[in-house]
Design a protein around this nucleic acid. Structure first.
Length: 506
RNA sequence: UCCUCGGUAGCUCAAUGGUAGAGCAUGCGGCUGUUAACCGCAGGGUUGUAGGUUCGAGUCCUACCCGGGGAGCCA
């Protein structure tokens, strides 16, 4: 590609270290600026990374100095300069600028390097994407997607695209987005699974990777109305081989993230040790065992200890706050700023603690009195995961809480051969699936029992009429998994433009 | 749908029912190695909306609007 700005091409920040000692061209945006009267430090952002560009008044022409001096946050710049090693910089190099060119002005950029609230950031998501944390998270997302495809492709799985528009409501219309399809009702897909089963009978092993829509009015840190799901479906797989696959998938993809995204994890202050312990074997417990664990003294003691630890932390923070306020009056300005920042941090943490202290006793009571037969609530899953340092796989759920197409446990007709994988640290369900029913008569009964329109499932029942085989699969929520990997507290930051209840823009 | 917390300067937050403030951002001035740079000065407000109580409301009451996260449901 010809470059109008110079006789040689521009390179990316990522490539800088390989060009040490050379004159190069960078193109990007001004992330932040510091400096004094005759020396400016421009942090340049180009999408691949950040680098400090040093502009000295006595070694550049007047125009370049003026551009550097007047450049505002997010101005687009072409920077020419020499790459030099500087161990104080995060990338190990900085650029000594020889000339600057302004490509695009930027007046009054709303997102400052300081703190912002959630609502403000969400309303400016189109610009927020340029900031460091979204950068780190979405780069991990990309790595995770590549790793998932690689994992399945290397194991002989065929990627398939399930339809996004569907005609039949599988699991109740309340959670489906309805739309008009040439005067017929249609819905946005909730799952590609039934189509995946058809493809598995044609290709053996397949996986879908596509968007999924849920119209549930859920305003929590775990819910999006539009999210991406990976759904493998395998002919001749049973519950155990499917658990093996889920385990291998998580171990492989997290290994890839650890190998390729250490810089991103560091930016997110995510301790890699939390991910390094995701190794085989994952604990596998039955639903019945999980219920016993929830109701156990062990769980009650663990939760009591958590409550006590939070109360102690709360007391310590209150004390620190009082001490800081006493010191405030006699402090210098710089010290006051530090105290202000600390006070905000303490406020935030005490808010979190207050919320946890409100929730934990409720969760404790809920776990203690959990009745066999009901499905786990969000809090029950969270409590279960606190017992393990890696994902825990729960299998054989009461059939009543699972979908109609689940195979029954041959040893206990009350149970479905279902599986859930719960991520550690309270992140909860990232995978849900199981072995599918293979018997035509059983499925017909189930469809009737669930009061589903049989006509709509005739094509699905054909899969049992013509060479029905044992098969299984599961759904992996990409954003939930990424929330866990990144160690962040809300799923909305794991997708470029999150769709949430009450928020459809930008 | 229910529960709960919140809405004060462009942003993040203070303010016993009694003169609406700070930091950042912005503008101006100072500073040749800064890492959220620092130092000084300045401008910036219909306290979400509509009522009510009161000598007096950001603060108390009622309704509504908007947002946070929790329940239900789920990945």
């Amino acid at each position: 590609m010809a470059d109008a700005d110079a006789g040689f091409r521009h390179i990316s920040v990522q490539e800088l270290a390989a060009h040490e000692g050379q004159e190069v061209i960078l193109k990007g945006w001004l992330y932040s600026k510091r400096g004094s009267k005759h020396l400016l430090f421009l942090m340049l952002r180009d999408g691949t990374g950040l680098v400090q560009c040093v502009v000295a008044a006595d070694s550049v022409d007047v125009d370049t100095w003026r551009i550097a001096d007047e450049a505002t946050q997010e101005s687009a710049l072409v920077v020419t300069g020499k790459v030099i090693a500087d161990e104080r910089q995060t990338g190990g190099v900085e650029l000594v600028v020889s000339s600057l060119k302004l490509v695009g002005e930027s007046e009054g950029y709303p997102i400052t390097p300081k703190e912002h609230g959630v609502d403000f950031l969400m309303s400016h998501r189109h610009l927020w994407l340029r900031s460091r944390l979204p950068w780190a998270i979405l780069r991990i997302r990309n790595r995770l997607i590549v790793a998932i495809h690689t994992f399945f492709q290397e194991r002989g799985f065929l990627q398939m695209d399930a339809p996004i528009l569907t005609g039949n409501a599988v699991e109740g219309t309340s959670s489906l987005f309805e739309l008009d399809y040439f005067d017929e009702k249609a819905y946005l897909t909730q799952s590609g699974q039934l189509y995946g089963e058809a493809m598995a009978m044609a290709f053996g092993r397949i996986y879908t990777f596509g968007p999924t829509f849920r119209a549930e009015k859920s305003k929590t840190r775990r819910h999006l109305t539009e999210f991406w799901m990976i759904e493998p479906e395998m002919a001749f797989f049973d519950l155990d081989t499917t658990l093996d696959l889920a385990e291998d998938l998580l171990v492989y993809t997290i290994g890839e993230v650890l190998e390729h995204c250490s810089e991103e994890l560091t930016m997110l202050e995510r301790d890699p040790a939390r991910l390094e312990c995701v190794r085989k074997p994952f604990p596998r417990i039955s639903y019945t065992q999980a219920v016993a664990l929830l109701r156990s003294d062990e769980t009650a003691d663990m939760l009591a200890a958590r409550i006590q630890a939070l109360e102690e932390e709360n007391a310590a923070l209150s004390e620190e706050l009082a001490v800081n306020r006493n010191r405030y009056g006699q402090s210098k300005k710089s010290e006051r700023r530090r105290l202000d920042a600390r006070e905000i941090a303490i406020h935030r943490r005490t808010g979190e603690i207050a919320e946890a202290l409100q929730n934990l006793p409720v969760w404790k009571a809920s776990a203690r009195s959990f009745e066999w037969g009901s499905d786990f609530g969000g809090s029950d899953e969270t409590v279960l995961t606190w017992h393990f340092d890696r994902p825990v796989m729960v299998h054989r759920y009461p059939a009543a809480v699972k979908a109609f197409y689940m195979k029954r446990d041959p040893d206990d007709a009350r149970l479905a051969m279902a599986l859930d994988v719960l991520a550690p640290e309270g992140y909860g369900e990232v995978i849900g699936g199981g072995e599918r029913a293979t018997d035509l008569a059983f499925l017909e009964e189930q469809i009737a029992a669930h009061q589903l329109p049989k006509e709509a499932f005739e094509w699905y029942l054909d899969l049992r009429r013509f060479g029905s085989v044992p098969h299984a699969g599961f759904g992996l929520g990409l954003e939930r998994m990424l929330t866990w990997i990144a160690g962040i507290d809300h799923v909305r930051e794991t997708i470029p433009f999150p769709r949430l209840m009450g928020r459809i823009a930008p």
